[in-house]
Nucleic acid binder design. Structure first.
Lengths: 142, 142
DNA sequence: AAATCCCATGCAAATCTATTGCATGGGATG
DNA sequence: CATCCCATGCAATAGATTTGCATGGGATTT
């Protein structure tokens, strides 16, 4: 849950109209403590309002493009979506359970990554550094 | 290219029969300096021998399962495959160009990741830590 | 040698995720 | 009012991967 982000402000700061659907998608992502797949976001929204699957995909693309939302790759087939780094959300690694597909956020410093050297020397454009730990979560270990 | 790995030995060490197809898949992966998608591997093999796409997928699954090959997620839709860490191949981060889809290997120490703490404290099983840098490569920047 | 079994492979179809093309309708603007 | 833009919906398509079922060759057993 994020009690600090104002989703309308985030949208308008990105110069995007705060349509009902965009707000709802952003809220589902922001109110969750771990990243979600497009399908999960769609199914969540479907329960409370009428929205099309394609609209969800398009809104996700838009939010990713405007860097409000982060598209995170998993050890599985689908992308997951979480809040992009901002004043209230620091970049952090994720844990992906290959058994149940649940993705968890790790604390920003549970894994320390030093990418300073790379940013200076890399002969291309770096957009982001993604760190993911794969394995089996506590629940699935039982 | 890897001149140090003997692919038949790798297969037999994993207690797998060294069939022609398995050897060929492993060679394509090992002889390449960066990870490849299943489709690329299939198309490469198709040029020199008769093999079915599904067979390639099944062999890849098998090699990943036996930890001879690493399944690497990209910023795109398909998985890429590279040699798994072994005596001649140390774990290393990758760079993924979102424009051309090319994936490059970075040197093991271009990004230093300290995951020691996590391995000790994490309440589940950790199989691997994947580090990927996303951006646009030198060529595509032109 | 014949019968049996296992397993690698092939082929077709299905599945899952995501994307594209086209239509519509509401709100803003001229 | 006429026009344009854009968010959305629906249907179809695309791309990657997986599944189900058949086959055939080699090893093992009888």
């Amino acid at each position: 849950m994020c009690y600090q982000c104002n989703y309308e402000d985030l949208l308008s700061a990105a110069r995007l109209d705060a349509t009902g659907n965009r707000l709802r998608v952003l809220e589902v992502i922001g109110n969750n403590s771990y990243p979600l797949s497009a399908t999960t976001i769609f199914k969540t929204l479907e329960r409370s309002c009428s929205i099309n699957r394609v609209t969800v995909y398009r809104i996700l693309d838009l939010l990713v493009e405007h860097e409000l939302v982060d598209r995170i790759s998993t050890g599985g087939r689908a992308f997951y979506y979480g809040m992009a780094p901002n004043a209230h959300h620091h970049p952090h690694p994720h844990f992906y359970c290959k058994r149940c597909g649940q993705m968890d956020c790790l604390t920003p410093d549970s894994l320390s990554v030093d990418s300073d050297g790379l940013w200076k020397t890399f002969p291309g454009r770096i957009d982001k550094v993604e760190v993911r730990v794969d394995g089996i979560c506590k629940n699935c270990m039982k």
